[in-house]
Lab assay of single mutants.
Amino acid sequence: KTEWPELVGKSVEEAKKVILQDKPEAQIIVLPVGTIVTMEYRIDRVRLFVDKLDNIAQVPRVG
């Protein structure tokens, strides 16, 4: 699995749990929505963009 659209609106902790069940090797990085990030693709990275309430604001994707 490479993306988790069902996690939008969920808490960071809930999202981490689901992603690590699907992809145990994932390196999860939590960032505020709108953060500028590098464009290199990494198969072991999932970025979680969160709103001010620490809920997932964008679809988490591998990369």
Score class of each variant (00 low, 15 high):
Ile43Met: 14
Lys23Cys: 15
Leu7Trp: 00
Asp54Pro: 03
Asp44His: 10
Gly63Glu: 12
Asp54Asn: 15
Asp51Glu: 05
Glu14Leu: 11
Glu40Phe: 05
Pro5Asn: 00
Trp4Val: 01
Glu40Asn: 09
Asp51Thr: 01
Pro32Trp: 00
Pro60Phe: 00
Ala26Pro: 02
Ala57Met: 10
Trp4Cys: 03
Asn55Cys: 11
Asp22Val: 05
Met39Phe: 09
Ala26Cys: 11
Val12Met: 07
Asp54Cys: 08
Lys16Glu: 05
Asp51Gly: 03
Trp4Ile: 00
Asp54Ser: 13
Leu20Glu: 07
Lys10Phe: 08
Val62Glu: 07
Met39Tyr: 10
Ala15Lys: 02
Val59Gln: 00
Phe49Thr: 04
Leu53Phe: 15
Thr38Gln: 12
Val33Cys: 06
Gly9Leu: 01
Trp4Leu: 01
Phe49Asp: 04
Val46Glu: 01
Pro5Asp: 02
Pro24Ser: 04
Ala15Asp: 02
Lys10Val: 12
Trp4Pro: 00
Ser11Glu: 05
Ala26Gly: 05
Val30Asn: 04
Pro60Ala: 03
Glu13His: 11
Leu31Met: 12
Arg45Lys: 14
Gln27Phe: 06
Glu25Lys: 09
Lys16Trp: 05
Lys10Asn: 08
Val12Trp: 05
Thr38Asn: 12
Ala26Leu: 12
Val37Phe: 09
Val50Lys: 07
Leu48Pro: 01
Thr2Trp: 11
Asp44Gln: 08
Ile28Asp: 01
Thr35Ile: 05
Thr2Val: 10
Arg47Trp: 14
Trp4Ser: 02
Leu48Tyr: 00
Thr35Phe: 03
Val62Trp: 12
Val18Asp: 04
Gly34Arg: 06
Ile28Asn: 03
Pro60Tyr: 02
Val50Glu: 00
Arg45His: 15
Ile29Arg: 08
Lys52Ile: 09
Val59Leu: 06
Ile43Glu: 15
Pro60Ser: 01
Val12Thr: 06
Glu6Met: 04
Val33Thr: 10
Lys23Glu: 07
Val50Cys: 07
Gln21Phe: 09
Ala57Val: 13
Gly9Glu: 00
Val33His: 08
Glu13Trp: 07
Tyr41His: 12
Glu6Val: 01
Gly63Val: 09
Gln21Leu: 10
